[in-house]
Write a protein that binds this DNA or RNA. Structure first.
Length: 278
DNA sequence: ACATTGACCTGAGAGC
DNA sequence: TGCTCTCAGGTCAATG
């Protein structure tokens, strides 16, 4: 990856649920079933609850059997029964490569698994806000972390239950991983744009119809992002994500201009025409 | 329960 | 050209 490519992907890649789902599919189609010959920890700071020595010992000889995603976490089951836990922070991603192949080692590798077949699986995380760890059990990990239900797996009733009694602003509520897991800054904006709800609206002010609309919009948004392989250029018309910049014309064609506001300390994009005055 | 602020982290881009 | 400043955002902790 050259510098320009690196810069571009840094701008675009902010791993939320759809991004991690793509990572899961990538892992499932590349690095499974090969014994791990050696584990290289290049950045100890990203390890959580485990030393480099322990991680290497637990991975040595083990095979990655299948990946599972919960919210923004990727949990990889080993044939030994334990799980490798990966969180991608803001800038993390995976790459499967070998010497002389078309893909090369990326620029900020924090963990590198050397596999028996000569290929390597890199966990790259430029800004070190990600996390690598081990878990004995995936369900218990999710519970102990206090994660809410996965945003894509939860049913309509479960979503409505999660909002019940909430009084905070809707955007930070969607982003609260304890309430539902997987939604971050970008996709909360997108779902709210699709549902035509101002991000600053209190959940308490949303009537039943608006809550259902939000739930459907969130599901639609996440599924669309995955189908587009999180590439902004592949998103269908009418999506905000490819036009997350101040002054862009409303993707829905209402004539409004996209504006940036700050909600709960985060930059939020919305269309004043479609999403009300707030 | 909820809001706010700051810390963590690195690199890009702006402004001087 | 090179410096300083701000910003990006996932998560956590402290404070109101």
């Amino acid at each position: 990856m050259d510098d320009r490519e690196s810069a571009r992907s840094t701008r675009r890649r902010m791993p939320e649920l759809p991004d991690v789902e793509i990572f899961k599919r990538y892992l499932d189609s590349t690095a499974l079933h090969q014994p791990i010959r050696r584990t290289e920890v290049r950045e100890e700071d990203l390890l959580r609850g485990v030393t480099p020595q322990k991680l290497a010992r637990r991975l040595k000889g083990a095979r990655l059997e299948a990946a599972r995603r919960h919210g923004k976490f990727l949990l990889v089951r080993l044939d030994t029964g334990s799980w490798l836990v990966l969180h991608f922070g803001m800038t993390g991603f995976l790459r499967y490569f070998r010497d002389g192949g078309s893909d090369r080692e990326p620029g900020h590798v924090r963990l590198l698994l050397h596999l028996e077949n000569g290929w390597r699986l890199a966990y790259d995380c430029q800004r070190k806000l990600g996390e690598v760890g081990l878990a004995d059990d995936a369900d218990r990990f999710v519970q102990e972390r206090g994660l809410g239900p996965d945003a894509l797996e939860m049913g309509r009733e479960e979503f409505l239950e999660a909002l019940e009694g909430r009084r905070g602003m809707v955007k930070p509520t969607l982003m609260n991983q304890r309430i539902l897991a997987g939604v971050g800054n970008v996709y909360s904006d997108e779902a709210l744009f699709q549902a035509r709800i101002d991000p600053r609206t209190s959940v308490a002010e949303l009537d039943a119809a608006a809550r259902r609309r939000l739930r459907d919009a969130l599901r639609e948004t996440l599924e669309t992002a995955i189908a587009a392989r999180v590439d902004p250029e592949r998103f269908p018309d009418g999506y905000l994500l490819p036009r997350r910049e101040e002054g862009a014309s409303c993707p829905r064609g209402c004539g409004g201009r996209v504006e940036r506001i700050v909600v709960s300390g985060r930059g939020a994009y919305r269309c004043p025409g479609c999403q009300g005055a707030g």
